[in-house]
Design a protein around this nucleic acid. Structure first.
Length: 657
DNA sequence: GTAGGGTTAG
């Protein structure tokens, strides 16, 4: 029988696409068509799925409800809305749209294609009664399309209409719960109906209990289930992993292994995410070995999880190899490899890959945007950032009102941060003011941004507005406030904030706060005070603190204290060039040139190389980078001439005074 | 005819 179907008719010979489709869906063809002996149907079905609809093929297709259902299932599986819609209208024309199974399949097809509006229209069609199948299909559609509360509404409606839920209903309804007590209510209903021991209901319960933080309830359900399949084990493992109970997750994995259940692809991705968040390369590699052995390396989701694991373990090269090997890269693949670059600090790489992604025809989503924007922030690449913001506006990213204001908090924060870090505080403020919801991070971004660009008054004003709005400042807020005071030279105010940190704001100072204060005091010339803070602080001073003090000593020409600080830095971080440079500059400022040479000599002996200073500017044609002593820029002469002109101009202006 | 578990960002 089978060879006939695989090599049957003209359809396969003439339409290559049909053949490809047939091969990838062999299982479907065998189970749904061969077993039902619809040989004739198989060929007309394939021609229908690839060519425009003809009246003849429609009549051939529509002589049987089973065929209609099979076709709609296929449209649902392939998310082929056009064919599904065409077929729906044919079903209406030829009177095949009213049988209950057809209704269920139509709702299912529209749900799977993300068209809940159409699904509801079918559901509410007055010509038929709404049975449990139709309810299950519409509830599952809402849940799958991220409209959980709507799904729950339909469950309530179902109960009101007296339609009894069944074992298909509960797994979907459970997923709409956002609190343990809601889960318990549904769990109770399933108990009453004697469905609590169903493994589908059980795994949904385990998943939702864990998601809402009730490990006891999840364990109880898991323990009582008479039959445990791989999906249930995965629900336990991934549920624990998601809430950060990594040890528990691994323990369940171990038990699964002991009980002889083989891990599936879903198990593997979950386990990989655990080793990724731990940065555990050894175990991650072991899992990679298992992946290859089991032949799971052909699956895109497993590859994506491997990319993430290698990336989080800082093995960017291995992540790239896996990425390149994926034949059909999906949005997860791109987002993963982009985030790997961003996490490793390769911001140029992040933007390069983003361009490549756009070129490959995959459209970015909110995750892509929130990964790429920080790269623009780090590089102060305002134009790229604006482009991305523009792209978001045009494509309606994260917005949900007619004014186009972004409604996703994290995304608005990311856009705002990009503008703030790139120095465009006006635009950052526009976003900030347009936000209907703000969190501490939103305020922090504005405070930091103002402080960073020297607008200390605006930063402090933001801070007081934040307190008035009853947001509780956190560590980041106070770093922002202190650094604003630092850059503006508001020493007494800075001291006051620092003194009040614990008592008024409930924030225990970290090394960053101490560094800020020491830097602030030092810059203002209060060198002894700065040194005192560094000595008395309860945390051990790090090289950053000592370098701040060293910098202050250079500024104010205090060689004695500079030597103390330098000794500390050199002890903690002998290979860092900055301290040597600072020290030699200190000697330079106070005219002790022999010591300058001495420090330079030590640097040479210790083989310490100075990292060249680097600055860059982004223009229409791309990024222009300049390093100290670098003469490679293509328009160097023009630039030098321009600089000379500016120099002359300045001299003339100065001469006027 | 309709169900449960996964990978990316902050």
């Amino acid at each position: 029988m089978m060879p006939n179907v695989l090599k049957p008719s003209k359809v396969f010979d003439n339409v290559l696409d049909s053949l490809a489709w047939c091969l990838t869906n062999r299982k479907f063809i065998f189970s749904k068509i061969v077993s039902k002996k619809h040989y004739f149907f198989s060929s007309s079905f394939l021609s229908f799925s690839t060519s425009p609809l003809s009246k003849l093929s429609a009549i051939q297709m529509l002589d049987n409800v089973t065929k209609c259902i099979a076709f709609l299932q296929s449209c649902a599986d392939h998310k082929n809305l056009n064919k599904g819609k065409q077929f729906h209208s044919l079903m209406i024309t030829y009177g095949f749209s009213l049988s209950p199974p057809s209704i269920t399949s139509l709702i299912n097809m529209y749900s799977k294609c993300g068209q809940m509006g159409e699904a509801i229209l079918v559901f509410y069609d007055p010509c038929h009664e709404r049975n449990v199948f139709a309810y299950n299909a519409i509830i599952s559609g809402f849940v799958a399309n991220g409209l959980a509360s709507k799904g729950f509404q339909f469950y309530e409606k179902m109960r009101l209409e007296g339609v009894m839920p069944d074992k298909y209903t509960f797994p979907c309804v459970v997923r709409t719960c956002c609190e343990v007590k809601e889960v318990k209510k549904i769990h109770g209903c399933s108990l009453k109906m004697g469905l609590e021991l169903d493994v589908f209901v059980g795994s949904a319960l385990v998943n939702t209990y864990l998601k809402n933080g009730s490990m006891e309830d999840a364990q109880k359900v898991f323990g009582e289930l008479p039959m445990r399949d791989v999906v249930l084990w995965n629900a336990m493992i991934n549920g624990y992993a998601k809430i950060g109970c990594l040890d528990e997750a691994l323990e369940v994995f171990r038990r699964m292994h002991v009980e002889g259940i083989a891990p599936g692809r879903f198990t593997i991705t979950g386990i990989l995410s655990i080793f990724a968040s731990r940065g555990d390369l050894d175990n991650g590699k072991t899992v990679h070995g298992i992946v290859v052995k089991m032949g799971y390396d052909s699956g895109v989701a497993v590859s994506n999880a491997l990319i993430d694991m290698y990336g989080k373990c800082k093995h960017i090269g291995d992540a790239l190899i896996i990425f390149e090997m994926i034949n059909e890269k999906d949005i997860f693949s791109w987002n993963s490899i982009i985030s790997v670059h961003e996490q490793c600090g390769d911001h140029h790489g992040t933007l390069r890959l983003f361009d490549k992604m756009l070129g490959s025809g995959i459209l970015p989503d909110l995750v892509t945007i929130t990964t790429v924007l920080p790269a623009c922030s780090h590089l102060a690449a305002l134009m790229r950032g604006r482009e991305i913001h523009g792209y978001m506006i045009i494509n309606g990213f994260g917005k949900d009102d007619e004014n186009g204001a972004i409604d996703d908090l994290h995304v608005s924060n990311a856009v705002m941060d990009m503008y703030a870090k790139c120095g465009s505080m006006n635009n950052a403020l526009k976003i900030f003011d347009s936000m209907s919801n703000k969190d501490v991070a939103s305020w922090n971004i504005m405070i930091m941004g103002y402080g960073m660009h020297g607008y200390a008054l605006e930063a402090l004003d933001m801070f007081s507005r934040m307190c008035e709005a009853e947001f509780k400042p956190d560590e980041v807020t106070l770093v922002g406030v202190l650094s604003a005071c630092n850059h503006a030279g508001f020493v007494s105010q800075g001291r006051l904030f620092f003194a009040q940190m614990e008592s008024t704001f409930g924030v225990i100072p970290t090394i960053e706060h101490y560094t800020c204060v020491i830097d602030m005091l030092g810059r203002a010339g209060h060198l002894e005070d700065a040194y005192e803070v560094a000595q008395k602080m309860p945390i051990q001073a790090n090289p950053v603190v000592w370098r701040a003090l060293l910098g202050a000593c250079r500024l104010h020409g205090n060689a004695e204290l500079a030597e103390v600080a330098a000794r500390q830095v050199l002890q903690l971080e002998p290979e860092h060039c900055g301290s040597y440079v600072l020290m030699s500059n200190v000697y330079g400022v106070i005219g002790r040139y022999e010591e300058v040479l001495e420090v330079r000599k030590t640097m040479k002996e210790q083989n310490v190389k100075k990292t060249p200073g680097c600055s860059w500017i982004e223009l229409k044609d791309g990024m222009h980078v300049f390093r100290t002593g670098d003469r490679t820029h293509s328009e160097l002469n023009a630039l030098t001439n321009q600089l000379c002109d500016i120099g002359f101009l300045l001299d003339e202006v100065l001469n006027l005074y």
